[in-house]
């Protein structure tokens, strides 16, 4: 089993991600040290909170420079995924630029945050092995990434949006696999066995 490293930069769901891995029998490494990160075998980039504050926290530790350079499989979760894009409307902040996409705010003509269990479809990468089309996973977010060439799973809330993105060694999910029951556990397992 590969060592899994979680980027520790004060994200709100860090404990949840760690506990989810421990339930699977994995003892993750938590680090905010770029030197440790660059040598990692699998990296999880969690995130709950505000994009601007999170980017500041990454920059303060030099993580904004090291994350895009990682060559091992990386999984961004929720805000982690949004920060991997070029720009976010939340706080009008520049992201890490791994995915050349803009993160938009949901229009207020529907309830925001998009909160709860929603279905994912057009599943198209190894992260979704053994996951059926239209499985339900748990989302909570007010900003979204449109469907693009990177989209490896879509969901629908007023419009279709990216539930997951993928490019080279970078994987990202808008939903919370650590809070998505057995489906979420399978997705985490799939990432770990990449």
């Amino acid at each position: 089993m590969n060592q899994v490293t979680i980027i520790d930069y004060g994200a709100g769901n860090l404990a949840s991600v760690m506990f989810a891995l421990k339930r699977m029998g994995i003892e993750p490494v938590l680090t905010s040290d770029p030197e440790v990160l660059i040598k990692a075998e699998k990296v999880i980039f969690p995130g709950v909170g505000h994009a601007l504050a999170a980017m500041d926290a990454l920059k303060a530790k030099g993580l904004d420079v090291v994350i895009p350079k990682l060559t091992c499989p990386v999984l961004g979760i929720c805000l982690g995924m949004q920060l991997m894009c070029t720009h976010s409307q939340e706080g009008n902040v520049a992201g890490l630029g791994i995915f050349n996409e803009i993160v938009y705010q949901f229009e207020p003509n529907q309830k925001v945050p998009h909160m709860g269990w929603n279905t994912i479809f057009k599943l198209s990468d190894p992260l979704f092995a053994k996951i059926q089309e239209h499985s339900s996973v748990y989302f909570v977010h007010s900003y979204y990434v449109p469907v693009s060439k990177y989209t490896s799973a879509a969901s629908y809330y007023g419009k279709a949006f990216s539930a997951a993105l993928q490019k080279d060694n970078f994987y990202a999910v808008q939903f919370h696999p650590e809070k998505s029951g057995v489906i979420g556990e399978q997705i985490l397992k799939n990432f770990i066995s990449l």
């Binding site: 506990f19 421990k22 748990y138 919370h176 809070k179 998505s180 029951g181 556990e185």
Partner: peptide
């Protein structure tokens, strides 16, 4: 909160 978070996989 800590015990629940360790044991269950829903929000």
């Amino acid at each position: 909160a800590s015990k629940v978070a360790q044991a269950i996989n829903i929000p």
